[in-house]
Design a protein around this nucleic acid. Structure first.
Lengths: 189, 189
DNA sequence: ATTAAATGAGCAAGCACTCACTCAAGATTC
DNA sequence: GAATCTTGAGTGAGTGCTTGCTCATTTAAT
């Protein structure tokens, strides 16, 4: 091993990919991503074998980041509502404070270049959160909906709330609370 | 005027665009769309000046179709809940019965090739529905949320419900009702 | 006969990806 | 510690392919 791959460069490529994919969509050229990262285009392909691999790894990185943020400070011992609200706040805060990441993730999620395997792996990062939801359901605190339904609703309401806050940042805390109220009244028994 | 443009051909192009954009995303080539419509590629450009214009018109056509479906049979005289449920059912049914249209619309909606003007015009098609929501809010039947928030939540919950039904079509009516319950309990006073 | 729709080969631009080459950073030898 | 060897990261012009769009020509409706 003569010269090790640089983790810093890998991260620079991913950071530039977030920026350009958020701004231009997945059609953002590899040449542009490499230039933005301060590297030659060829270098990008020593870190990622193909553009598809770059996009899939970026997708997983973003999903993992959101999941990690959510689990940090998760109140294991608290009641259902409080734990639920923690997840909600984490999702909304992450989306607002990582606007480019959120836009990029949205573009990636609707693309067919993200493999089924990546999608499954991306969901797996949220398995602890799913387990929490499942426990609450069995406790009878939540209505008896399938977990996929609750997860989809959580994601959908989060997205709508973030979109609204993005247009009217002054009301951030107000809409954050209002969004959670809709979720809670919609799902709780 | 020697030879009139054919409305049938225009619609064939739009129909093929729906099919291919749903399957491949907005990167679906104009050559493929024209071939699928049974026309030469050049003909496509006598009906639509550019690919961007085709995509924008397709976006508006789909939005208008969904709005028209929703307004058809709208119970003007009924109570808020019933009118609300009609809108919900129309959205969900349209999404399930027009799967390709929905996928195409989703791809178009996240694309930056849809102009701000098109987006505004697309929303305008739903102005009557917005007015209905506004009236219900003033009547005190709904919580006091801004209209944009209610609209976004409606769209988001619809999407989540459709996604779930697509995966488990046998439970269509059940999930349709469950989704509406979440919406209603979340928004009603 | 006139006019404009319809055609599809062709064009310029943009794309992902390659590869012959350079050179910096470990490994080996003394 | 210095000198030398070895490996593979880094480079960017080049390649082959695809794309949106054009235009000289053909076809058909009026």
């Amino acid at each position: 091993m003569a010269r090790p791959l640089s983790e810093a460069k890998r991260e620079a490529i991913l950071a530039s990919a977030i920026k350009l994919v958020a701004a231009q969509g997945i059609s953002a050229p590899t040449a542009g991503i490499a230039r933005d990262a301060g590297l030659a285009e060829g270098t990008l392909f020593t870190y990622f074998a193909s553009k598809d691999e770059l996009l899939n790894q970026l997708y997983l990185e973003l999903k993992a980041d959101l999941a990690a943020t959510t689990l940090k400070g998760y109140p294991v011992a608290a009641g259902t509502r409080e734990r639920f609200e923690h997840v909600w706040n984490s999702f909304v805060d992450w989306g607002i404070d990582h606007s480019a990441e959120r836009k990029a993730l949205r573009q990636l999620a609707v693309s067919d270049r993200i493999s089924e395997a990546s999608r499954r792996q991306g969901s797996a990062a949220f398995s602890e959160i799913s387990a929490m939801l499942e426990r609450s359901r069995r406790d009878g605190v939540l209505k008896d909906h399938p977990q996929a339904f609750v997860g989809a609703i959580l994601e959908a309401l989060t997205d709508a709330t973030i979109e609204l806050i993005a247009r009217d940042p002054g009301q951030r805390e107000h809409y954050k609370k209002a969004g959670f109220d809709v979720l809670w009244h919609g799902l709780a028994t």
